[in-house]
């Protein structure tokens, strides 16, 4: 549904995006992650026809964004990182304005606007002036706006930025609902844990190039990270360390507060062996849990925080 081939964008001597190859299938949610100035917003702007690429090509639903701009815009809903609003309009008028801009027939507009208001839970704000809405409400309105023409693809540039925790959770639920509706979503965010929960695939970009693209599960081997478990025993932790360190499947055992952090050798996963060894030695095992690789950790390991 979304594809880029050797996409490059230069601003004078600055290379914002460099030979970027990207593919997002229909119905996927793709998380776009990177430090500030990495080229996320530039890539998104090219995809929604607001910027011309210097070289390479980008396609939405098989249409070249440089050649079929108008058709691409009909298929894409774009929400920028900072969304301005028209301060002279009310919520309904604002949405109807964009419905008209997308060429929706006058007779159908009311039903469509009411539909997106309901979907985004803004019905109570129907007659409120747009500029009187809180930040969270304005973000919801932005989402309502991008849905007004029922696009196949949504390009959302940091839609959760500046929102309070409740609004963020609501936004996440809304995105899940949109996924259920079959939309293809490309979303950038700095709140990495949120992307982890809703994205099918992620792409980590730095200096205009992907340093990783794939599923969350694919990151671990890519980083050469071995599996880890956290263990807690009651009694003699020093003995537990001694016993576990002697196991051939285990590379390292470290004390971490009340817990033990156990790192397996590459390709090994021996939770059962750990439990058996400790119980047979007469130690009381009270906690055994595999450690998850957080997206934040992967982000820190993959990127160096270098910006243009």
């Amino acid at each position: 549904m979304i594809e880029t081939k050797k996409l490059t964008k230069n601003f004078g001597n600055l290379v914002a995006v460099s030979d970027l190859d990207l593919y997002i299938g229909a119905g996927d949610i793709f998380g776009f992650i990177g430090p500030n100035g990495a080229g996320k917003t530039t890539t998104m702007r090219i995809l929604v026809t607001l910027l011309e690429p210097t070289s390479g090509a980008a396609f939405i639903d098989g249409l070249d964004v440089s050649k079929k701009g108008k058709d691409v815009r009909r298929r894409v809903g774009y929400m920028p990182d900072f969304m301005g609003v028209y301060d002279d309009l009310k919520v309904f008028e604002y949405l109807e304005f964009f419905a008209a801009a997308f060429g929706i027939e006058y007779k159908k507009r009311k039903a469509i606007v009411d539909g997106v208001l309901e979907l985004t839970d803004l019905v109570s704000k129907r007659a409120a002036p747009v500029d009187s809405l809180s930040r969270g409400m304005q973000q919801r309105l932005g989402l309502a706006r991008v849905l007004i023409h029922d696009p196949k693809v949504l390009v959302l540039d940091e839609p959760a930025s500046g929102l309070d925790p409740r609004a963020r959770i609501e936004m996440r639920e809304l995105l899940r609902e949109l996924k259920r509706m079959g939309k293809t979503i490309m979303i950038s965010s700095h709140i990495l844990s949120e992307l982890e929960e809703i994205c099918d695939r992620i792409g980590i970009i730095e200096r205009g190039q992907f340093v990783f693209s794939g599923t969350i599960e694919e990151i671990r081997p890519r980083l050469g990270i071995q599996s880890k478990v956290r263990v807690k025993v009651v009694g003699d932790p020093a003995r537990a360390i001694e016993l576990l360190s002697a196991l051939p499947q285990i590379q390292k055992v470290e004390a971490a507060g009340d817990y033990l952090s156990v790192t397996f050798c590459e390709g090994q996963n021996a939770d059962g062996v750990i439990a058996r060894t400790l119980v047979n030695a007469g130690l009381d095992l009270v906690y055994l849990h595999p450690e998850q690789l957080k997206l934040d950790d992967a982000f820190l390991q993959l990127t160096k925080g270098i910006v243009h």
């Binding site: 009310k90 304005f97 006058y106 129907r126 002036p129």
Partner: peptide, 28 residues
């Protein structure tokens, strides 16, 4: 902005611009 928004939501304050919603006619 927050105060105004809350005032409108609670119905206590008056919205700054009242009146009917205007339909979009002709060129948007």
């Amino acid at each position: 902005v927050q105060e105004t928004s809350e005032a409108i939501a609670s119905g206590v304050g008056k919205p700054r611009r009242r009146g009917a919603i205007r339909p979009v006619v002709g060129s948007p």
